[in-house]
Structures are given as C-alpha cells and as structure tokens.
Amino acid sequence: MELTESLRQRAERLHLHGLLSHWNELSDSLWVEPLLSWEESERAQRSLERRLSSAHIGRFRPLADFDWNWPEQCDQIAISELMTLEFLQKCRQCHSGGGPAAWGNPPSPRTLPIRLSFRGHTVLFTTAGQLLGDLAALDSDSALRRRLRHYASPQLVGH
C-alpha cells in the first residue's frame, strides 16, 4: 500500500491527470513505476537542455581538462571552493564579472554557469554590451519591464 501511495504522489507531481483519474484500475500494473521513472527522467533532461540553451553559455573547456600546473597564478583552491556553489545559500541572484583575467585565468568563466545549470539553477551568460544593446532596442515601457524581469530572473548572470 505504501508503494502505491508513493507512486500516486509521483504521478500527482508530474500532473499526469489521465493516469490519476484511472488510478484504481491501473495502480497495480507493473508498467506504472517504469512509466513514472521515464517521465521524471525525460522531464529532468528537457529542463536541463532548456536551462543550458537559455543561458547562452556557448562553447567551453570542462574543468576536468584544465592543466592546473599552468598558469601558476591560478588559485585551484579558490576555484574548487567556488564550484561547491555554497555562495548560493547567501544570495538570491549573483553576478560574475569579467573574463579569464578577472577570474585569475581559470579553466573557463563558463564552467561555473554550466555547473549551476546541471544543479538545476537558472543562468544567463551575456556581456554588459549585449545587455545594454538589448535594452536600448526596446520601444515601449512594457517591453522594457518584461526584459528587465528576464535579466533579473536567473540565479546567476555572468559575462
């Protein structure tokens, strides 16, 4: 009974109303649990793909491919601490600035946004010039308000 209730709660979270309306007929079927697992997995994958696409991160070199022996001024401990994402507990929205020089020439300024996206956070990777150009091109107050909400909604805005 406990397993059936757990499956029903998963179906409710997924908003599978057709399945829920016939729950008494189908709850004992062997295919219900795999169906819910497939749906959860597919939705998680599509959510990640959407977040990565809307982040505008572009190409980057993964942290695993970085040569920590060069350059010497790269602070591996600081970058490792940053990648734990603990700073998110202290802020609603964070802004990262600058390219490799501002980051102490790390593996890639895109590594942090990618990691955030994989953890389920929203990210927008843009330059100040792109942001200002985008805002300047708007021709109405309502469009400007919508666009400002767009730039204020991600949990990390980086450039």
Rank of each mutant, 00 (worst) to 15 (best):
E25Q: 06
N105R: 09
D141L: 14
R147L: 00
L48H: 08
I57P: 01
R13L: 11
A55F: 03
Q76G: 04
L88I: 10
T111P: 00
A44G: 01
T84S: 12
G104W: 06
S27Q: 09
G133C: 04
L3G: 03
S142R: 13
L19R: 03
E42F: 15
F87P: 06
W70G: 10
Y151W: 12
L131A: 05
D139S: 15
R51G: 04
R51M: 04
V157G: 04
A137P: 01
G104M: 07
L132T: 10
Q130A: 08
L7K: 09
T122M: 06
D141Q: 12
Q9G: 00
S117M: 00
Q76T: 13
D28C: 10
A152Q: 05
L148Q: 10
P71Y: 05
R51Y: 07
E81R: 13
T122I: 03
H150E: 10
K90V: 03
W23K: 07
L82S: 12
S54Q: 13
I57M: 06
L26N: 08
R147T: 00
A78S: 10
D28G: 09
W31L: 14
A64M: 03
I79V: 11
S140A: 07
R115P: 01
T4H: 08
H22K: 14
A143Q: 08
S142K: 12
R146M: 13
A55S: 12
S80V: 09
L16Q: 05
Q93Y: 00
W70K: 14
R61W: 11
R146V: 10
I79C: 05
L16H: 00
E25L: 11
Q9Y: 04
S27Y: 03
D67T: 07
L48W: 09
A128W: 01
